[in-house]
Design a protein around this nucleic acid. Structure first.
Length: 932
RNA sequence: GCGGAUGUGGCGGAACUGGUAGACGUGCCAGACUUAGGAUCUGGUGCCGCGAGGCGUGGGGGUUCGAUUCCCUCCAUCCGUACCA
C-alpha cells in the first residue's frame, strides 16, 4: 500500500521547483506586486535550529497565498554575511572569514531548501560579496556628499552648500543660521571668510555638515573585541555579542548623522502597520522631548570670566522659581573656568573619580548622591535669584546641554541632591509644601512663582517661554535622546570605507574605483601599533600613495538597504534599476525578530529616508507591515542523579533522594520518557548508569530556556524532516501558537500534525493505496464544509493567524473523513487552500488529480456564501444569562414570534414557575435571554 | 522607577465588532482490532457533586438582560529602558 511517503514527495517537488524556476519573480506591470521579506540571517556555524524557520514559514505561507490570489510575488532570500563570529574564528584558526562564511551559507541553504520555501534564489544577495558591498559603499559616498537642509527638510548635495558658502557664508541675511541641521556649534563666517580659508579649513567645515562625518566622539570601546560599538550594540554596559565590558573612550570615528532624521523617523511611525510595542520602542529610542532652553549668567566669577553663560535644557520651565542651584556634568569643558581657587582641589578630585567610574558602576549605582560645589554662582534669568553652581554626575554630558537647573521641589533627583547637600527647597506647586516628598505631586497650580502665580502648570510653561523669549534669555526647544551612530569598526570582516586621506583630510575615492575590495592580510588582529587589522594590508593605498581608511563598516551597513538589491540583484550599473524599484516599491510584509527594534529597523528607515531624498526610491518608509515573530525557546529535559552515585531517579521520586539535576539530550527523550539504552550510549560516564523507575519508565523533568548546545535542547529541523517530513514541520511550527508569541519547542505534539496530513492523503486513496477520487457531484453538506473552510482560511491568513488556520484544516479533514467524501470538486479546492502550508503534499495531490502545472499557478477558490446560508437557527435559550435549552426557529421567524414560543416552551415554563418574566431579549441569530 | 505586553483545563492554545467559554492538538481514561507495538480506529475528558445542580477565563469591584471581551483597582510573569532634566 502506497501510504504517505513524504520523503519521496518532498525531494521530488523541491527538485521540480528548482528545475522549473517556479518562484522566479520578474517585473510585470500587468500584475499587482507583493513583496514578502524575511530578515536575512547571519550564517552562523551552528546551522539552523528548529526556531529559526518560524518566521520564514509564515512569510512563505503569505507569499504562496498571494501568488494564488493573483499577485506577482517577490520572495527572496540572502545572507547578512559580514560579522564578528567568522572573524573571531579567523583569529583563532587563521582561516579566512570568507571561507568559513561560504561553508556556513552552503549549509544554511541546504537546510532552508529542505523545508520547501518558495524563495527566488536567483536573487540571492550576500552583504560580503563585492558586487553587493560596492553599493553599500556607494550609499556611504552619497551620504558623505550630502548635508541636511533644515529649510527644505531633506538631504541635499554638498555642492549646494558650498555654493551657499561662496555666496553668503553660513548665515542668511542678518538672521540666525537656520539652514543646516547640525550647525549650532559652527562659528559664523561670511562668504569672504570662506574664500579666505584654505582647502583643509574648508574641508573641516564641510565635515561638520556631511551626513556621514569623521568626528572625535565619546564612544563605546570594547577592549575584548578590539572595536567600538554603537549604542544599540551595548546592553547593560556590556557588548551585546559576547558580553564583554565596554568603556567610554574619546576616539575619532566615522559617524552617521541619523539625528538629522529624528523627527521624520518619529513621524514615519504613524504611517506604518507595525505592532504598537515596537513603535513605542523606537519612539523611546528617539526620545523626543519638548522643553525650553534658558540662559543663566555666571556671576562673581572667581576666574574673572564675566561673560560666561550656561544654557540649561528643561521640560519644566514653569518651575523656574523653584530653582535653588544649577548642576553641570563633570565632563563639561567650561568647568576649569567656573571653578573658584578655593574649590579647585575638591573639583579636580571629584572629576577624576567620576571619570574613573566605569559605565557599569555608574549604571548599577544610581542611588548614591555625589557632587561638588564649583564656587561659582549663576543668576536665574526669570527670577533674578542668585544660586550656587554644582558639578554632579547625575547630569549627562551627552544629553541636552549638559547643564541642569535644580528644582528640588518637583524633581526626584534634585530633591535627593538638595537634601544631601543641604540646599534650599522652594515649593512652587500648590499642595507640595506639606508633603514629605514634594515630587509626589508634579502637576498643578503654581505658587511662590512671581508672574506665574496661580497659573496651571501647562499655561505657565507657555507664559514662561514667552517671557524668556521677550527677555532674550531662552527659547522653546525640542530635544532628542537619540545620538548620531558610530559607523567605524576596528575590524577586518566588514565593508571597507571608500575613503582615503590626503594631508589628514578624508576624501572619497572615485566612483569608478568601486568596489573597494577588502584586501588580504596575514593575521586578523590589530597591528602592533594598535591600528585596525586593515593596517596589515601591504601597499594598500589609493592610487598607490594615499592611505585608505583602516576601519570597516558596522554590521548594520549592508542590512540597511539590502531589500532593494533583491529587486534587481545582478545589476552592476546601479544598486537596482529604476524600473525594478518603481515596480516593487516597498516591502509589503516584513517578518523578523524584535531584537532589531532599535538597530536594523531604525537604521534601515534612516537610509531609506535618505535614499528617498536623493530621489532613488519612491517610498518614505520601506516596510509597510511588520511582524515580530516570537522566539522559539528550547525545552530542556533533566535527569536526577543521586549524589555520589551513578543512579538516576525518575522525576516524581526525586524528592526522596539528594540529587543533582543534569541536562540530558532532548533527542533521546520521547514524551519526557528517557530512552535508557540511548542514555547509556550517550556519554561514556553513563555507560553503567542505573535507574530508579516509576511505572517501569524513567520520567525526565523539563524546563524552558534558550535553545543552546550546552543545554542539549537543540532540535534540528533536518531531524524532524527526516522523521515527519517538511510539511509536518511547517504545519506544526504554525500550530504551536500565535506567531508573535514566545513559546517553547516541544516535539511531543507533532504527531497531531502528521496524522492530519496522513488523513488527508487517505481521503484521496482507497485501502489499496490507489487514487480513489470520484467525479460525483458533492452534497450540500460537503459544499458547506468546503466553503466554510475557504472563508475561515482566507480570513485567518489575511490577519496572520496561522495557528488557527491549521485547526481549520484539521476540522475540515475530520468532517470530510466522517462524511466519507472523496469528491474531486471538493478535494481539489481543499488542496489549493492547503498548498501554502503543506506545499509538497499539495503539489503531489494536485498532480494526482491530473493537473500538469505547479499548484503555484492555481487560482484561489472563491468563497460562495450561498453555500453557508441557513434557513434555520438553533437558538440558545438562557434564563438570567445562563443557557438552559435550545430551540430551533426558521430564520424568518420574527422576534415577537420567537419570544412567544420561547415563553410557552416547557423548559422556560419550568424556570418561570408561573411568574411573568421581567424582560425577554431576542438577538437574531445569537441568543434569547429571559430575565426573571 | 518608567514604558509596553501577557495572565483561559494536566499542557500548547481557540473564542471576529459583548451573546452556548475551553474549538483544534497533545496528554489522560475506557473500548475495538490486534495479540504486548511508542501502530490504527471509536468514545470520554474544566472543577465539585451519585444526581438535580453549583462553581469556573490571575484577585477584588463596576457597567450590562448577558463580560474571557468594556471601565476602575490590585497582584503575578515576561520584554524594553534606565540618573534624558
Amino acid at each position: 500500500m502506497a501510504d504517505y511517503e513524504f520523503s519521496k514527495i518532498e525531494k521530488k517537488w523541491q527538485q521540480y521547483w528548482e528545475d522549473q524556476q517556479t518562484f522566479k519573480a520578474e517585473v510585470n506591470p500587468s500584475k499587482p506586486k507583493y513583496y514578502a521579506l524575511d530578515m536575512f540571517p547571519y550564517p552562523s556555524g551552528a546551522g539552523l535550529h528548529v526556531g529559526h524557520p518560524l518566521g520564514y514559514i509564515a512569510s512563505d505561507i503569505v507569499a504562496r497565498y498571494k501568488r494564488l490570489k493573483g499577485f506577482n510575488v517577490l520572495h527572496p532570500a540572502g545572507f547578512d554575511s559580514f560579522g564578528l563570529p567568522a572573524e573571531q574564528y579567523a583569529i583563532q584558526t587563521g582561516q579566512h572569514p570568507a571561507i568559513t562564511t561560504e561553508e556556513n551559507i552552503t549549509r544554511y541553504k541546504e537546510q532552508l531548501k529542505n523545508i520547501g520555501f518558495s524563495f527566488d534564489w536567483s536573487k540571492e544577495v550576500r552583504t560580503s560579496d563585492p558586487s553587493f558591498y560596492k553599493w553599500t559603499q556607494w550609499i556611504f559616498m552619497q551620504l558623505f556628499n550630502s548635508w541636511y537642509n533644515k529649510e527644505t527638510d531633506k538631504a541635499e548635495p554638498i555642492t549646494a552648500l558650498i555654493a551657499q558658502f561662496e555666496h553668503s557664508g553660513n548665515r542668511q541675511g542678518d538672521g540666525p543660521r537656520v539652514f543646516a541641521v547640525c550647525d549650532e556649534d559652527t562659528p559664523a563666517f561670511s562668504n569672504e571668510d570662506w574664500k579666505q580659508m584654505n582647502e583643509r579649513e574648508q574641508q573641516e567645515v564641510l565635515l561638520k555638515f556631511r551626513l556621514t562625518y569623521l568626528a572625535e566622539a565619546t564612544v563605546n570601546w570594547c577592549p575584548a573585541l578590539g572595536t567600538v560599538l554603537a549604542n544599540d550594540e551595548v546592553k547593560d554596559g556590556v557588548s551585546e555579542r559576547g558580553g564583554y565590558p565596554v568603556e567610554r573612550k574619546k576616539m575619532t570615528q566615522w559617524m552617521m548623522r541619523i539625528t538629522a532624521y529624528a523627527e521624520r523617523l518619529l513621524q514615519g511611525l504613524e504611517t506604518v502597520d507595525w505592532s504598537e510595542p515596537l513603535k513605542e520602542m523606537q519612539r523611546n529610542w528617539i526620545g523626543k522631548s519638548l522643553g525650553a532652553e534658558l540662559d543663566f549668567k555666571v556671576t562673581g566669577n572667581p576666574v574673572a570670566h564675566e561673560d560666561i553663560t550656561l544654557t540649561v535644557f528643561t521640560t519644566r520651565i514653569d518651575t523656574i522659581f523653584g530653582v535653588t542651584y544649577l548642576s553641570i556634568a563633570p565632563e563639561h569643558e567650561l568647568i576649569p573656568q567656573l571653578t573658584s581657587p578655593e574649590q579647585k582641589a575638591a573639583v579636580e578630585e571629584y572629576i577624576s573619580t567620576a571619570k574613573n567610574r566605569s559605565e557599569r558602576d555608574r549604571m548599577s549605582d544610581v542611588k548614591t548622591v555625589s557632587g561638588v560645589f564649583t564656587g561659582s554662582y549663576v543668576i536665574n534669568p526669570l527670577s533674578g535669584e542668585k544660586v550656587q553652581l554644582w558639578i554632579a554626575d547625575y547630569v549627562l554630558a551627552g544629553y541636552g546641554t549638559g547643564v541642569v537647573m535644580g528644582v528640588p521641589s518637583s524633581d526626584e533627583r534634585d530633591f535627593r541632591f538638595a537634601n544631601h547637600f543641604n540646599l534650599p527647597i522652594i515649593y512652587v506647586i500648590a499642595g507640595t509644601e506639606t508633603l514629605e516628598n514634594p515630587c509626589d505631586v508634579k502637576y498643578g497650580q503654581l505658587i511662590n512663582s512671581g508672574f506665574l502665580d496661580g497659573l496651571d502648570w501647562k499655561v505657565a510653561i507657555q507664559k514662561a517661554v514667552e517671557r524668556a523669549e521677550e527677555l532674550g534669555v531662552g527659547t522653546a526647544k525640542i530635544n532628542y535622546r537619540m545620538r548620531d551612530a558610530v559607523f567605524s569598526r576596528q575590524r577586518y570582516w566588514g565593508e571597507p570605507v571608500p575613503v582615503y586621506f590626503k594631508d589628514g583630510i578624508p576624501y572619497l575615492i572615485d566612483e569608478s574605483d568601486l568596489p573597494l575590495v577588502l584586501p588580504e592580510i596575514d593575521k586578523y588582529l590589530p597591528t602592533e601599533t594598535g591600528e585596525p587589522p586593515l593596517g596589515r594590508a601591504e601597499g594598500w593605498k589609493y592610487k598607490g600613495k594615499y592611505p585608505y581608511e583602516l576601519s570597516t563598516m558596522p554590521g548594520w551597513a549592508g542590512s540597511s538597504w539590502y531589500w532593494y538589491r533583491y529587486m534587481d540583484a545582478q545589476n552592476d550599473t546601479t544598486f537596482a534599476s529604476k524600473e525594478a524599484i518603481d515596480y516593487w516599491k516597498d516591502v509589503d510584509l516584513y517578518i523578523g525578530g524584535s531584537e532589531h527594534a532599535t538597530g536594523h529597523l531604525l537604521y534601515s528607515r534612516f537610509w531609506n529616508q535618505f535614499l528617498y531624498d536623493l530621489g532613488s526610491v519612491p517610498e518614505k518608509e520601506p516596510f509597510k507591515k511588520l511582524i515580530n515573530q516570537g522566539m522559539i525557546q528550547g525545552r530542556s529535559n533533566l535527569v536526577y542523579r543521586v549524589n555520589g552515585t551513578n543512579q538516576f531517579v525518575s522525576y516524581h521520586l526525586r524528592e526522596q533522594y539528594e540529587t543533582t539535576a543534569l541536562h540530558v539530550d532532548v533527542n533521546i527523550v520521547d514524551n519526557d520518557v528517557l530512552n535508557l539504552n540511548a542514555f547509556k550510549n550517550w556519554r561514556t560516564d553513563f555507560e553503567d548508569a542505573e535507574f530508579i523507575l516509576e511505572d517501569g519508565k524513567y520520567l525526565c523533568g523539563h524546563e524552558v530556556e534558550k535553545m543552546s548546545k550546552s543545554k542539549y535542547n537543540v532540535v534540528n529541523p533536518d531531524d524532524i524532516i527526516e522523521r515527519f517530513g517538511a510539511d509536518t514541520l511547517r504545519l506544526y511550527e504554525m500550530f504551536l501558537g500565535p506567531l508573535e508569541q514566545f513559546k517553547p519547542w516541544n516535539t511531543n505534539g507533532i504527531d497531531g500534525s502528521f496524522k492530519f496530513l496522513r488523513k488527508l492523503w487517505r481521503l484521496f486513496h482507497d485501502e489499496a493505496g490507489n487514487l480513489a477520487v470520484s467525479d460525483e457531484a458533492p452534497t450540500s453538506e460537503e459544499w458547506k464544509v468546503l466553503h466554510r473552510t475557504i472563508h475561515k482560511v482566507e480570513e485567518d491568513i489575511e490577519r496572520h493567524a496561522f495557528n488557527t488556520t491549521v485547526s481549520t484544516f484539521m476540522i475540515c479533514v475530520n468532517e470530510l473523513t466522517t462524511l466519507k467524501c472523496h469528491k474531486r470538486a471538493i478535494l481539489q479546492e481543499i488542496v489549493i487552500l492547503l498548498s501554502p502550508y503543506a506545499p509538497h503534499m499539495a503539489e503531489e495531490l494536485w498532480q494526482l488529480l491530473g493537473n500538469k502545472d505547479s499548484i503555484t499557478y492555481a487560482t484561489y477558490p472563491v468563497f460562495k456564501p450561498e453555500y453557508l446560508v441557513e434557513s434555520i437557527f438553533e437558538y440558545p435559550i438562557s434564563v438570567n444569562g445562563k443557557v438552559r435549552a435550545k430551540i430551533t426557529f426558521s430564520l424568518d421567524t420574527t422576534p415577537a414570534e420567537i419570544e412567544k414560543s420561547v415563553l410557552a416552551s416547557e423548559h422556560v415554563q419550568k424556570w418561570l414557575e408561573g411568574k411573568q418574566p421581567k424582560k425577554v431579549i431576542v438577538v437574531p441569530k445569537k441568543i434569547v435571554n429571559v430575565v426573571i
